[in-house]
Computed example of a mutant assay.
Amino acid sequence: MRSAGGGSLPGMTQQTIRHTLDAPGAVLSYEVLGSGPVLALIGHPMPADGFRPLAEQLAGAHTVVLHDPRGTGDSTMTDPTEPPDVATLADDLSRVLAAVTSEPADVFGSSGGGITALELAATHPEQVRTVVAHEPPLVEYLDDAAVHRAAGEQVQRLYREQGLMAAMALFAQQNGFAPPPGAPAPPPPSEADLRSMTRLVLGMGTMTGHRVGELPAGQVVIGVGAWSDQATTGRTSRAVAAEHGLPLVTFPGGHGGFHPDQGGDPVAFAVALEEALRR
């Protein structure tokens, strides 16, 4: 494991240290900040930076672990054209948690990170205390899964024919990700954003087509955004909760309810997450 110094989040006195960890086919980047019980925040394809506003609210009561999934942020891959694999991402998260603590940890996963968190609970239940999977886009749980499968194939075909931005525009249209009223216009994508978008497109099928195995009783909660009734991820959240017999908890905002740049409120979201972890 290698470490590099980092700065502190605004309003925080703890120093944030960035670590790297070797894994098969990748070098994984993660940060540890705050103090208290371990809580990992994981996304996909969003890297750790997207969780910083939420982490600032949680680090006073938790040791927060922020992890860039392989191929995003500062986590590199030997072959960045290789599609994301749910089992591999869960194993990566398992390695990161093992490097931080020998005790079971709480895990909050959002979007594709929710899929990773569910897979971690299914395959490494001894490492988790409570898992909150927020809006996992597992379309195979839907009764119209074939329609979503075809839509994903259409996005990938457009990616090959017209490029990344055309594919992402179609993806947003398909999944009801129009910004909420009053949300600021997003800035132009950075290089890191483009890498994450590429991981999203490459993961259609391998990520969204996944089905989770048996989950440990009493340790997993599904989260859904209050604004997500019409979004695909709102439907998948309800479907996954119903099929696995899991509690369904409503969180403030929509798919990005923890991030102010996506119309979210990290303060209110942190309160809801703390309540979900205490269930």
Results as ranks from 00 to 15, higher is better:
Ala105Tyr: 02
Asp106Tyr: 14
Phe108Gln: 04
Ser111Glu: 10
Ser111Gln: 11
Ser111Asp: 10
Ser111Cys: 11
Ser111Lys: 11
Gly112Glu: 05
Gly112Arg: 07
Gly112Ser: 08
Gly113Glu: 07
Gly113Ser: 08
Gly113Thr: 13
Gly114Arg: 00
Thr116Asp: 02
Thr116Phe: 02
Thr116Glu: 01
Thr116Tyr: 00
Ala117Phe: 11
Ala117Val: 09
Leu118Gly: 08
Leu118Gln: 06
Glu119Ile: 07
Glu119Thr: 08
Glu119Pro: 05
Ala121Trp: 02
Ala122Phe: 04
Thr123Gly: 01
Pro125Leu: 01
Pro125Trp: 04
Glu126Trp: 06
Val128Met: 04
Arg129Cys: 01
Thr130His: 03
Thr130Gln: 06
Thr130Pro: 00
Val131Lys: 06
Val132Cys: 03
Ala133Pro: 04
His134Thr: 00
His134Lys: 02
Pro136Gln: 14
Leu138Gln: 00
Val139Glu: 08
Glu140Cys: 13
Asp143Leu: 14
Asp143Phe: 13
Ala146Lys: 14
Ala146Phe: 11
Ala146Ile: 13
His148Leu: 08
Ala150Arg: 15
Ala150Trp: 15
Ala151Ser: 14
Gly152Ala: 00
Gly152Val: 05
Gly152Glu: 00
Gly152Lys: 08
Glu153Leu: 14
Glu153Asn: 11
Glu153Ile: 13
Gln154Ile: 13
Gln154Ser: 15
Val155His: 08
Val155Gln: 05
Val155Trp: 05
Gln156Ala: 12
Arg160Trp: 12
Arg160Lys: 12
Arg160Met: 11
Glu161Met: 15
Glu161Ile: 15
Gln162Ala: 15
Gly163Pro: 12
Gly163Lys: 10
Gly163Thr: 09
Met165His: 13
Ala166Pro: 12
Ala167Leu: 05
Ala167Gln: 03
Ala167Asp: 00
Ala167Trp: 01
Ala169Glu: 06
Leu170His: 10
Leu170Lys: 13
Leu170Ser: 07
Leu170Pro: 08
Gln173Cys: 09
Gln173Lys: 13
Gln174Tyr: 14
Gln174Pro: 10
Gly176Pro: 00
Phe177Ile: 12
Phe177Gln: 11
Pro180Trp: 01
Pro181Ile: 01
Pro184His: 06
Pro186Lys: 01
Pro187Cys: 14
Pro187Thr: 14
Pro188Ala: 03
Pro188Lys: 02
Ser190Leu: 10
Ser190Lys: 11
Ser190His: 10
Asp193Gly: 11
Leu194Asp: 05
Arg195Ser: 06
Arg195Ala: 10
Arg199Asn: 02
Leu200Cys: 09
Gly203His: 02
Gly203Phe: 05
Met204Pro: 07
Gly205Ser: 09
Thr206Ile: 05
Thr206Gly: 01
Met207Ala: 01
Met207Glu: 04
Met207Tyr: 02
Thr208His: 12
Thr208Gly: 04
Thr208Ala: 06
Thr208Trp: 09
Arg211Gly: 05
Gly213Cys: 11
Leu215Pro: 01
Pro216Phe: 06
Pro216Arg: 05
Ala217Pro: 00
Gly218Thr: 07
Gly218Cys: 06
Gln219Gly: 07
Ile222Leu: 13
Ile222His: 10
Ile222Val: 15
Ile222Trp: 10
Gly223Phe: 02
Val224Phe: 02
Val224Gln: 07
Ala226Leu: 10
Ala226Tyr: 08
Ala226Ile: 12
Ser228Ala: 09
Gln230His: 14
Gln230Val: 11
Thr232Asp: 05
